[in-house]
Design a protein around this nucleic acid. Structure first.
Length: 238
DNA sequence: GCGACAG
DNA sequence: ATCTTGTCGC
């Protein structure tokens, strides 16, 4: 009985997202508007979830880095109930709202946002990074830790040395690229979000890879922070 | 019809 | 994403 309701809800969300995609599709800005020489504030975004009394909550964390010095200049987080379930392809519907709420808390200007998930590498080019980039009118990059298999794509021939990459081309169009950020470590999936091109995005991502992780420090730090916020939240609310 | 499927 | 301990390896 509950299963049918879930299936029905998923179909409903997919339909709503389909409409939203049609509305936003033409607003994707593919022309590059990011100059690395003048790039200053780069933000990493991530969310963590938990449940309480059959309600689901999440905290979103944004960490702003100075691109030149790689120092953290600001951290912000917010917590809220999440009502949209996770559906592959509709991640933006689940995560955007709390992200926007958190972004409004920032006191510093952000030149570029980096998201945990895809951007243009999506069946309708509408991954979280692209969606957020359009909504905010900001440059964004999508960095996913695993491949979204909406299409078959073999990257087993990707060289093991760091810096190597393979473009993910579908029907003659480049959707994104598999990028090896650390030698011998599983690659990440970089795609354009909005107002940036893949070459510039790749450079920025590679420049923000540290020794500690194969994902950019922006995303890594935001991820660690979400876990801390959730931990405090759970121990303080009893 | 069934399985796969970013986080 | 989340549930979870130890353990193999550089």
């Amino acid at each position: 009985m509950g299963d049918k309701n879930i299936v029905y809800e998923e179909q409903h969300i997919k339909e709503l997202f389909e409409k939203k995609q049609e509305e936003l599709q033409s607003k994707i800005e593919l022309n590059n508007m990011v100059t690395i020489d003048t790039l200053h504030n780069v933000a990493g975004v991530d969310l963590a979830y938990w449940k309480n009394k059959d309600k689901e909550y999440a905290c979103c964390c944004i960490v702003v880095y100075d691109y030149k010095t790689l120092e953290v200049i600001e951290k912000k987080s917010s917590v809220g109930e999440v009502t949209v379930p996770y559906i592959a392809g509709c991640l933006a519907f689940r995560e955007y709202e709390l992200f926007e709420k958190t972004a409004q808390l920032l006191e510093n200007n952000v030149d570029l946002y980096m998201f945990d998930g895809n951007g243009y590498l999506h069946p309708r080019h509408m991954g979280l990074a692209t969606y957020a980039g359009i909504m905010l009118g900001k440059p964004t990059i999508g960095v996913a830790k695993s491949f979204y298999k909406f299409i078959d794509f073999d990257y087993s021939n990707l060289k093991p040395e760091e810096g190597n990459y393979i473009d993910i081309v579908i029907g003659g169009e480049v959707y994104g690229r598999v990028l090896r950020t650390h030698t011998g470590v599983k690659p990440i999936f970089v795609s354009v979000g909005n107002m940036i091109d893949l070459e510039v995005a790749t450079k920025i991502v590679m420049n923000m890879i540290g020794e500690e992780s194969h994902i950019p420090i922006t995303t890594r730090y935001a991820d660690i922070m979400t876990h801390e916020v959730r931990k405090n939240r759970l121990s303080n609310e009893k």
